[in-house]
């Protein structure tokens, strides 16, 4: 699906246009690798018996997990034409827990672009709006990501 991503130079003409970032099948192993990386031992994320007895009835991902989904595609897009990429901000809204077994479709649009001179040359501030739907077309989360390119 990456062939349909716009290039950074073309992003200004794409404000508001949606494009697919990918379809992600959320597996237990994926959640386990993520929580091992962030060193979060909460049994809700890994212990099937514990999670089955909780209000969730099974393993869920930490709410922050979803903000990494599809973001690697945005980074890849911007890296092709950026010197340096920094992350400016994240705004995450969660509507449903993300469960192992969910199939998530991530869709992005460019919300806005600003440019201003900085000490390392021209800096471009790009805000993306990403929405995440599950296999039942229910909205699971929305995330706004602001990235700084210079």
């Amino acid at each position: 699906m990456t062939e349909s991503l716009p290039t950074i130079g073309g992003l200004k003409d794409k404000i508001g246009v949606e494009w697919p970032l990918g379809v992600y099948e959320i597996e237990k192993g994926m959640i386990r690798r993520f929580v091992q990386a962030i060193e979060d031992p909460n049994p809700l994320w890994q212990d099937e018996e514990y999670a089955a007895r909780s209000q969730y009835g099974g393993i869920v991902a930490p709410p922050t997990f979803i903000m990494t989904i599809g973001f690697e595609q945005i980074q890849k897009l911007l890296a092709a034409s950026s010197g340096t990429l920094l992350h400016g901000s994240t705004e995450l809204e969660c509507y449903q827990p993300l469960r192992a077994g969910n199939v998530i479709t991530a869709t992005a649009k460019v919300a806005n672009i600003r440019e201003r001179p900085g000490k390392m040359g021209k800096m471009t501030f790009i805000t993306f709006g990403i929405s995440y739907q599950n296999q039942r077309q229910e909205l699971v989360a929305k995330c706004r990501q602001m990235v700084i390119s210079y």
């Binding site: 969730y56 930490p62 901000s89 705004e91 995450l92 969660c94």
Partner: peptide, 18 residues
């Protein structure tokens, strides 16, 4: 947050400025 609110709490929104 998730450690503090426990299994019965829910994180609805998280805004982060780096």
């Amino acid at each position: 947050i998730t450690d503090w609110i426990g299994d019965g709490g829910r994180l609805k929104k998280l805004s982060l400025s780096y």
